[in-house]
Amino acid sequence: MTATVTCDYAKVQSILDGHGNDPARLISILQAVQAEYRYLPEEALAYVAEALNLPPARVYGVATFYAHFALEPKGRHVVKLCDGTACHVRGSMPILEAIRKRLGLTGEKVTTDDMAFTVETVSCLGACGLAPAVVIDEEVHGQVTPEQAVTLIEAIIEKDKEASHV
């Protein structure tokens, strides 16, 4: 089950006000909305469109154009695997396979059912010296092997378990 966030109209409106309700600043508005919800909920996009007097299809078009924007809710932990040239050559694909296998994910299904993990690939993190690199929750891990990557994931799962027992 995907837990969609219920969009708070007042919050979106305050973001819009913060940007002077200016359609020319749509991209920054969407960034701010995404910072709030970790993705762009449909109802928030529809609201932004209505408020800025833009067709919803145009706002949706912008939101789907940039890889930075997520249209689906993401998991609590985001794993970004670099598939830039350097990482690819040094074996990022086996790492991706191993992580996906451990979490039961595929190229189409990128978020676990319990909303714990989202696994995505990115094109070049700019950390080629560390290739192959993986970023988990904003922390960069360099020169990882598939086994090490799985260990990192398992450590997070353990930690989450403990936290929920407390």
């Binding site: 067709p55 299809a57 949706y60 078009g61 154009f65």
Partner: peptide, 16 residues
Amino acid sequence: IDFVGRGTSNQVMPAF
């Protein structure tokens, strides 16, 4: 209707 997505997944469709 508008363009949605980019590159090879670019399509013309209604919002959402």
